[in-house]
């Protein structure tokens, strides 16, 4: 069983005015000029390089870090690379107020922890780069710097099953055997 409790250092995606980024489109996460890339190992270096203020994210992020954004993160295209680039960098989880529908599917299928935090905008000022966020994927409880707690959405059943299996392919094998 993979741990259902994860913890990491936060990167809070804010725009140059300090506002949490909403509607981060897949072209801002992984630009279309790189769509020919098929090797996940090559995808990480381009993560967020078309998002103003975050062009050097790939150099700054460390394995296990957690990325936080506002509403509709991953809007736009169906490109798997926009998820796999974060996996390639070892990002531990994405936390957002909401996710684009296709993006969320892609993340679930890749076994990347994506956590929907519906009340995020009410607490947006609280979260800062470098804070330590702990997430209980099963209950949706978030803990900031070991002190304050917040309630996000727990993983859905299928999301947890795929996450535990590793990815969609491993999950598919389990289902076929059942």
């Amino acid at each position: 069983m993979k741990p259902t409790h994860i913890s990491g250092k936060l990167w809070v995606l804010r725009d140059p005015h300090g506002q949490l980024y909403d509607d981060v489109d897949t072209d801002m996460i992984f630009h279309n000029r790189y769509l020919h890339i098929t090797d996940p190992a090559e995808m990480g270096r381009y993560a967020l390089d078309n998002l103003r203020g975050w062009e050097d994210f790939a150099q700054r992020v460390r394995p296990g870090d957690i990325v936080m954004a506002g509403r509709n993160f991953g809007a736009g295209s169906s490109r798997q690379q926009a998820v796999d680039c974060f996996l390639s960098l070892g990002v531990g989880a994405l936390v957002a107020e909401s996710f684009g529908a296709i993006y969320k599917r892609n993340a679930i299928n890749s076994g990347l922890a994506v956590v929907t935090f519906p009340s995020l905008s009410r607490h947006a000022e609280t979260f800062r780069n470098g804070d330590v966020l702990s997430i209980d994927l099963g209950s949706g409880e978030l803990q900031l710097n070991g002190v304050r707690t917040y309630r996000a959405q727990p993983f859905s059943r299928v999301q947890m099953a795929i996450y535990q299996a590793g990815d969609l392919f491993a999950y598919g094998e389990l289902v076929a055997q059942a």
Binding site: S77, S78, R79, Q80, V83, I102, R105, N106, N109, S110, D167, L168, F169, G172
Partner: peptide, 15 residues
Amino acid sequence: GQGMGDKDITFAFRT
């Protein structure tokens, strides 16, 4: 109609 990433589509091709 639904757009999907390459993992979903790989699985759909096979199953």
